[in-house]
């Protein structure tokens, strides 16, 4: 199995005003990723940008890997110009995945915006008994809603500007959701912007449920060598790329 491999771009297309979906076919045998794991992707063969960029995989098909990404800076802008047939170098799968929910608990997935990228593949592996709370700033920020519908699970959408689904922040929706079903035991899985993760973690603590968050941090290598992606935990600094990106909620010092 090759952890550093070349992949051929099959398709690279916009899915809304600021997000793209890249489909790439590894040209060597690679290990099957666990939901929540990520890949380092070469956005352009150049000295600037120099470093690969980390992306959770959105979905794996028998031949391809799919990545959802946002146009954020120079690297992702160049990445959006990758054409079908171009070859890119990729490292992965890297990091830890989402652990399965402990027996007797139901998975509650909370995605904020692009956070769906890492939770989608996890949702696919779970039985339909899961519940997905999916929040975005506005209607046009949602990603892959058709695919999410096909999961066949309970989905609650919400928007900060009340333009779609429930009105309000996903953090409030999580709180309401847990308050309305106090008898049921959940394991929470969250991915999204850092303030959202901090708020959701706080909610989980108040409702005394356990859970996991997937974090993001600048990283140079992605495989544990540079120590650039440190996150403060109750047991000192840990590497987002190696001990994470998925961490138990109670470990993170917010």
């Amino acid at each position: 199995m090759h952890k550093l491999f070349t992949a051929r771009v099959i398709e690279n297309r916009p899915v809304n005003h600021k997000n793209y979906l890249l489909t790439a076919q590894p040209l060597a045998a690679t290990a099957a990723p666990l939901p929540g794991q990520f890949y380092m992707i070469e956005t352009a063969r150049s000295l600037d940008p120099l470093l690969k960029r980390p992306f959770s995989y959105f979905r794996r098909t028998p031949d391809t890997l799919q990545f959802l990404y946002a146009l954020k800076g120079k690297g992702t802008a160049l990445m959006s110009t990758l054409a079908t047939g171009q070859e890119i170098r990729v490292i992965g799968p890297l990091g830890t995945g989402y652990p399965p929910p402990p027996k007797g608990t139901a998975p509650l997935l909370v995605a904020g915006g692009l956070g769906i990228a890492s939770l989608f593949s996890f949702a696919e592996t779970l039985s339909k008994k899961l519940c997905l709370l999916y929040g975005a700033r506005c209607r046009s920020d949602f990603l892959m809603l058709d695919e999410v519908d096909k999961l066949g699970c309970e989905v609650v959408t919400c928007t900060d500007d009340f333009s779609f689904g429930k009105g309000g922040k996903v953090t409030d929706v999580v709180s309401d959701f847990l308050s309305s079903s106090p008898k049921k035991r959940y394991t929470l899985y969250a991915c999204g912007p850092l303030p959202m993760l901090a708020a959701v973690s706080d909610t989980a603590r108040r409702h005394k449920i356990r859970g996991f968050v997937s974090l993001e941090e600048n990283m140079a290598c992605g495989f544990g060598a540079c120590l650039g992606c440190a996150v403060r935990t109750v047991r000192g600094y840990k590497r987002v790329c190696k001990e994470g990106p998925v961490f138990p909620i109670e470990e993170i010092v917010w």
């Binding site: 000295l47 600037d48 940008p49 120099l50 470093l51 690297g75 941090e217 600048n218 990283m219 140079a220 540079c226 120590l227 650039g228 992606c229 440190a230 996150v231 403060r232 000192g236 600094y237």
Partner: peptide, 15 residues
Amino acid sequence: EGNPPPRICETPCGM
């Protein structure tokens, strides 16, 4: 234990 994050950032042709 090292410095608090962010610890790295990319700059043109370097970091």
